[in-house]
Design a protein around this nucleic acid. Structure first.
Lengths: 294, 294
DNA sequence: TCTATTTGATAATTCATAGTTATTAATTAA
DNA sequence: TTAATTAATAACTATGAATTATCAAATAGA
């Protein structure tokens, strides 16, 4: 007499409480009547409370039995519901992804992903945070983030990286700059200008790419300012403190007195990549990755 | 592979989820480690969802596991409470309510409720526990508590909140403090004093209210100490380590060398609210709620 | 009153499986 | 490299759930 109450006891109890008849309840449970009788008696012993009054020809619930019936119904329901939810979570149809991104990813890739997610898995929550490349790396490695959108060519061990979007670069010039789009031939025309760039720290890949675009044009750019915000860079250009080269996607969504000249012929591209941790087991993440490659 | 999930599985799961270590969990359960391993694996098969990530030296919960842990905590607590209630009913008592409260509720609201309960339902048992706002929220959500008395303005989904008592605030000053009640005009007279407050963690609403009382008086209070016990706060004031602002009800029942000045003109009030879970099934709880609103 | 029938409980038995011990493979730390 | 520690696997043991067979008590019909 040293055992434990199990769900079996409650399930059997509920059957008897519903049928008020041991043989019928046993049939419904596909077990024999004596087995049921002993299990119910066991339950009563374990709870130290009689649940049924049986006077040989009539079975009825005690007040304690009535109370327990209600509770058992509730608990078994709750357990069922829990199991259903659990399966959804396991399949990634229910849950949360935490996404980090560079400002320039917000023009295009991230909003599309969010729309697709909403459509396919309406039960999935997303949390979004604009972060630098470096901050995203750190957050992903420390499990503060599931998915990042960065401009990097390589990534530390343990992380995956996959390019998702390639963009040309565009020149950013003050509106009244003498150089017009139809007269633009080569980057070398800008050898004497001051350049404003995203800081090397914010995105080393971007930084080096811009430098190499200029070097391919035969000069080393004079860098006058560095910034981490597109807004700031455009403002500086507007005020004629220099010119800039940025991923083309960035020009959407800003109202500034600047003009853009897309560098179509230049082979360097701004590559936006998706990064995540190899052993991240968030099932929602797997669905995000699938969504982005179908 | 045709068996059923039993409570045993959930109890074992919870132990592993808490320890994140199979051997230690097995010890706590007084069973062998291999037995535990097979039961957990069985549970995962039955639920068709992995609950743990085990890479031989580290055990951690999957998102599904995290969810299940919360649910299992709730269900096991609920079952425990049901068994307790059942025994009381079996003995002819009506049941039990478990009440949590902030210290300041003990001066007034809670004792009255207890007296009313005793008069109307002498068969009902009560268990009382002094807890912080946060601890009460947690306990109510996990069915460790039926009713809480807190100072909060809002409450998570699934819980009900109802204000039960509004109190003015009072200044607490050392007995020989130069400021006398009849010469008190405005809180701004105290701009230079050090303040002792209940810690923000204990009751964020209280904390912010006191800060805003001072800011309405035109200054930002210097906070020198924080505490979670009225006793301690009064002792600190007595020893001239600062002054305090507390709900007026608190002054009853302490013998200290401090004086109180009620802030009658100040619009902020200390609101004590009652909270409970929407789907709490304790029948006695409904009676408590009725008692407090008649 | 005497059967016949139906109820839940008891007794003896069987058998499924929870839990055991012994061992292994993988990982980390020294 | 070795030593120590982890969780998983394999073979087994023994607990106790469930079975069959039976009983005693209650009801209903003749």
């Amino acid at each position: 007499m040293n055992y434990q109450i199990e769900l079996r006891h409650y399930i059997y109890f509920l059957a008897v409480a519903e049928e008020l008849h041991f043989r019928k309840a046993a049939e419904k449970l596909f077990i024999s009547q004596p087995g049921l009788s002993t299990q119910i008696k066991q339950l009563e012993n374990l709870l130290k409370t009689p649940l049924f009054l049986r006077n040989k020809k009539k079975v009825q619930l005690t007040p304690a039995g009535v109370y327990l019936k209600g509770e058992v119904e509730f608990i078994l329901n709750h357990l069922n519901q829990t199991q259903k939810q659990l399966k959804l979570i396991g399949k990634g149809h229910l849950g949360e992804v935490r996404i980090g991104f560079l400002g320039s990813a917000m023009q295009n890739v991230v909003p599309n992903l969010l729309l697709d997610l909403k459509r396919e898995f309406p039960q999935v929550h997303t949390s979004l945070e604009e972060l630098s490349n470096r901050a995203q790396l750190h957050a992903i490695q420390h499990d503060l983030l599931d998915l990042g959108f960065v401009r990097l060519s390589r990534v530390p061990k343990g992380l995956h990286i996959k390019p998702v979007y390639e963009d040309t670069f565009s020149l950013v010039l003050p509106e009244d700059h003498p150089l017009e789009e139809h007269r633009f031939k080569s980057i070398s025309q800008l050898a004497q200008e001051d350049f404003i760039l995203f800081s090397k720290d914010y995105s080393p890949l971007y930084y080096n790419t811009v430098i190499s675009i200029c070097e391919d044009g035969g000069f080393r750019p004079k860098v006058s300012h560095k910034s981490v915000h597109a807004q700031t860079i455009f403002k500086l250009v507007e005020n004629k403190l220099g010119i800039a080269i940025v991923p083309t996607a960035l020009q959407i969504g800003f109202q500034m007195k600047v003009k853009f000249i897309e560098l179509k012929k230049i082979e360097q591209r701004a590559t936006l990549s998706m990064i995540w941790k190899e052993d991240n087991r968030n099932p929602v993440l797997q669905n995000c990755i699938k969504l982005l490659f179908d």
